[in-house]
């Protein structure tokens, strides 16, 4: 077992999501224009949670999609082929404000892939980025609009976000 520390427990994680939802609502006055798009495997779960928080705030149903970005990655011939998860985009993104949702922002390469993948579904009016954890070490000029918690890390550490795992509390864990 690697050494690990809890960065956010279940209550802190939910508080962070609630704050992000309020920030999204504050930034986007026209709630009806907003759609959330989560990146699997954890970002999509976060997107659905944010979607229900925002639906309560705005009193309207906020559409939530799932976007797998594996086919748009830039490291495909440098690693074993990734497992592709289903993409479900049950709405048109053209003219909408898309809030991309991911669990951890690290090098920024997943976000870049996601922006490319999103383009295949239409031309959003704007794209914003919400992440639960920003761990630094960016390799691309990308920053998040909404951040749950900034965590300084070393390159060898791993940040795991655990959501809805049966028998375990939700948590964000730093593995040394």
């Amino acid at each position: 077992m690697p050494e690990s520390a809890i960065l956010l427990n279940a209550a802190a994680l939910q508080r962070a999501l609630t704050r992000i939802a309020h920030e999204i609502a504050e930034r986007n006055e026209a709630g009806a224009e907003v759609v959330l798009v989560g990146i699997p495997l954890v970002g999509d779960q976060l997107a659905f949670r944010l979607g229900s928080l925002l639906s309560d705030l705005w009193k309207l149903t906020v559409p939530v999609g799932t976007l797998d970005v594996s086919m748009h990655r830039d490291d495909l011939d440098r690693r074993a082929a990734p497992t592709i998860h289903p993409t479900l985009m049950p709405f048109d993104v053209t003219g909408r404000t898309v809030v991309l949702v991911d669990d951890v922002l690290f090098t920024g390469r997943t976000t870049r892939a996601a922006m490319d993948a999103l383009n295949d579904f239409g031309r959003p009016k704007q794209i914003q980025l919400a992440v639960l954890i920003d761990r630094g070490h960016r390799e691309l000029p990308i920053r998040a609009d909404f951040v749950g918690k900034n965590v300084p890390t070393t390159l060898t550490e791993k940040v795991r976000v655990r959501l809805d795992v049966p028998g375990q509390e939700d948590a964000v864990v730093l593995e040394k």
């Binding site: 490291d75 495909l76 011939d77 690693r79 074993a80 082929a81």
Partner: peptide, 14 residues
């Protein structure tokens, strides 16, 4: 083609 294009080693990089 997609799977064969993958390199050696673990799936998870960074």
């Amino acid at each position: 083609l997609f799977l064969l294009n993958g390199g050696k080693g673990p799936q998870e990089v960074a």
